[in-house]
């Protein structure tokens, strides 16, 4: 395989992002040097345990990290232009118009006191010059597009009159109302029934594909990733452990942590009675070990892992050939760089 040409122009680039939270005992690094790009129409799945920094990465990109958190380093670029240092008012104009965000719980994402139509119309009119009636037309069209039946009637309903799945459809309509170039979906199906999850993911994928929207899909559900993502990034303790094409990472995980994660997915075909588990727990952000953050739990750790921090890199050519590693598959692990250094 050669370079991945399907997503040539990056919509969003994150370079060496560092997010810190000020605490009484000094700054706490929630995100420590995360880099990735997402191209037009591409879906990047981001997986990891709770506290791995998935959601904080999303909040950092859209500029909604609440104090005492702040972006302490690195940069975020939208279409090649830096946005992490924009004044608050300019950043606000980008939110909703260029960058959309979908939250985890549709039951709490909508203001209970406002009709869903009014919430849509206010979003549309905040970012465009449409008249009230034109915005209402647009809102009805959006509701129809996300699969709300009888949208011209439902537009005057209140959130509590919608089911969870329908509310998440409304949330998606809100996030996509102004046709953003990039959408952050922060665990969009976690709070939903399993039967509804697939519908919502399919809807999100279809809408973003037709619009060419770049998507960052944060989840801890590997099934969702396998279904919807083009590439996947595995996060651990605020860093990216492995990133690459989704089939590749799921089928041939390189990083011991990613391998453990994939091994913990139950499959119907598997003969094993027990799922593999990774011993121990993710370190607290207050005491991330030196070197590779995963080293205390890693069965294959060696001296270098406890001293030098591995950076995400392409595995050595010989190894890539042997393990059938696709291009663009990067891993932050000394197991795959050690030999190259020795050469």
């Amino acid at each position: 395989m050669t370079e991945t040409p399907s997503f040539p122009e990056p919509v969003i680039s994150v370079r060496n992002l560092v997010v810190e939270f000020a605490t009484r005992r000094g700054p706490l690094r929630a995100i420590d040097g995360v880099s990735f790009t997402i191209g037009k129409g591409e879906v990047l799945g981001v997986v990891g345990e709770s506290g791995a920094g998935k959601s904080v990465t999303g909040s950092a990109i859209i500029g909604l990290i609440d104090a005492p958190g702040r972006i302490a380093g690195g940069e975020v670029l939208l279409h090649g232009k830096r946005i992490d240092n924009l004044p608050a008012e300019e950043m606000r104009r980008l939110r909703g118009r260029k960058i959309g965000m979908i939250f985890q719980d549709p039951l709490t994402s909508l203001d209970p006191l406002f009709r869903v139509g009014d919430q849509l119309i206010e979003t549309i009119r905040t970012h465009s010059d449409l008249s009230a009636s034109a915005a209402r037309e647009r809102a009805i069209a959006l509701l129809a597009e996300v699969g709300i039946p009888a949208p011209e009637r439902r537009i005057d309903g209140y959130p509590h009159e919608f089911s969870g799945g329908m509310r998440q459809r409304v949330v998606i309509a809100l996030a996509l109302a102004c046709e953003p170039d990039f959408v952050i979906a922060d665990e969009p199906t976690t709070a939903l029934d399993v039967s509804v999850q697939a519908q919502i993911i399919a809807l999100l994928k279809r809408l973003c594909a037709t619009r060419g929207t770049a998507v960052m899909l944060v989840t801890h559900d590997m099934g969702v990733i396998a279904e919807a993502a083009d590439r996947v990034a595995v996060m651990y303790a605020g860093r990216i452990a492995e990133i690459g094409p989704v089939r590749d990472v799921v089928k041939h995980p390189l990083h011991p942590y990613a391998a453990g994660l994939m091994g913990a997915i139950p499959t119907l075909s598997s003969e094993a009675d027990r799922l593999t588990q990774i011993p121990g727990a993710m370190p607290r952000l207050t005491n991330v070990p030196p070197g590779c953050a995963f080293n205390p739990r890693c069965a294959r750790a060696f001296d270098r892992c406890c001293i030098e921090r591995p950076e995400p890199a392409l595995p050595s050519a010989a190894l890539a050939a042997r393990e059938h590693v696709a291009s663009g598959h990067r891993v932050a692990c000394h197991l795959y760089t050690a030999r190259e250094d020795a050469r």
Binding site: R92, Q104, T108, L110, P112, L113, L174
Partner: peptide
Amino acid sequence: RTDYIKFARARGLTARAINFGHALKN
């Protein structure tokens, strides 16, 4: 602190609309 206020911010609504429209009414 609620989700719908965070979502309102993520939609790029003005501070005025968020604070006096959504937050105050709630």
